[in-house]
Design a protein around this nucleic acid. Structure first.
Lengths: 214, 214
DNA sequence: GAATTAATAAAACAAACGTTCAATTAATTC
DNA sequence: GAATTAATTGAACGTTTGTTTTATTAATTC
């Protein structure tokens, strides 16, 4: 056989992307074979090479689009020129919402960096650094304004990002906590961690107060 | 050729373990070949099978010993029956010291879980859960005593562990910050995050005050 | 409806993989 | 110093890997 009835390049490519994110997140990039991926899509392995010249190209595409999406989401969500506490709250909310919504893709972007060629690794890391820089700027502004109490801006930024991204490790939609509850609790922890003076977060917590429990 | 002069089973096995931790941390378990590992040790691939019956046995051994070592380290470091704040400080200090000292092994234990068989995965996760349970107990005691201000004990425990373990991602020995400085800053962030009332941490920070900088 | 383009299958490729086996030599025991 | 045990090599096994090539069919264009 050859071309199948109803076959459509765009749809197939989208199906490949989706299946690849799921398989790589579950099995790991190295452990996923192109035949396995093809079977998941319902196609022969050779057909994949019409859309991605190599396996690594596929991985890189997934990662790049994920990181670009993260930056775009932040650029859309960032407050115009607000005070540091509100900006930090927006950053936390955007980060958690984005990462929970794209758990698998985040897994891939964080875990499979070592499978990229040096040049491509650099490109992904640049995007990541640009994103982290936004957080550092917020923390610095807040510290200089005396609103935050921070020992080391760089270190605090890394700690916050690790803490927030860690959500994807244990969070499962539809279990004990809702996304709103998780977000509210993380926002509260973040504000305490940076020693926020004004309770800019208590306002944000108001509409998710039932989250408080242990 | 066959047995080489000066060859010693114990030394070879130790060399295999060490090389494997380094290679798996750098390349990933699936990406590391047994031939590559053997070359690093200075031996033929077949020789590895004298010490580990399969590649997965090797991975499991590394992970199990790492997790057991973590629990042993905490059992040796835990205060007898102190107040929650001091216990939490001890937990944080032990966690960071252990993970920085064994960065590569931690990387392996955290990233390669999916390469284990279901039964072995369960065994490793049991060890991890036991370790996390210790932190939850401290947080619960502190919250009940009114010393900590915590919304959700389970969620806070996960957030703290993710935050602390994240150190191994960016920390490089001999760079800007010393281990003592990093530990002091993380301890301070932890105490703020859990809303510690009494400044039990300020005492611990006293002997690493120069860490404060950004 | 013929010609062209798009999308796929089927088969094959060399290379690399984890692992096994038999042979061989060093170290140890008696 | 002969016999035994410990440690390793070198070659081979069957599979699986990512990828390429060629042929074939569906959809589109003219």
């Amino acid at each position: 056989m050859a071309r199948t009835t109803g076959s459509d390049g765009e749809k197939t490519e989208a199906a490949v992307r989706e299946a690849a994110v799921g398989l790589i997140a579950r099995l790991g990039y190295e452990a996923m074979s192109m035949r396995q991926l093809a079977a998941e899509v319902g196609v022969q392995a050779a057909a994949l090479y019409r859309y991605f010249p190599t396996k690594e190209d596929l991985l890189f595409t997934l990662m790049r689009e994920h990181m670009e999406g993260l930056l775009e989401a932040w650029n859309a969500a960032r407050p115009a020129a607000a005070e540091p506490a509100a900006r930090l709250a927006a950053y936390v909310e955007n980060h958690i919402a984005f990462h929970i919504a794209r758990r698998h893709a985040t897994h891939v972007s964080n875990m499979e960096l070592r499978s990229l060629s040096p040049e491509r690794l650099t490109r992904i890391l640049k995007l990541r650094t640009a994103y982290e820089k936004e957080l550092r700027a917020i923390l610095r502004d807040g510290a200089e304004a005396g609103i935050f109490k921070i020992d080391d801006v760089g270190l605090t930024a890394m700690a916050l990002i690790q803490m927030m991204t860690g959500v994807i490790v244990w969070f499962r939609p539809g279990e004990r906590l809702s996304i709103a509850e998780v977000t509210a609790t993380y926002l509260s922890m973040t504000m305490r961690l940076v020693g926020a003076k004004i309770d800019a977060h208590s306002a944000a917590r108001r509409h998710a107060k039932d989250a408080v429990a242990f």
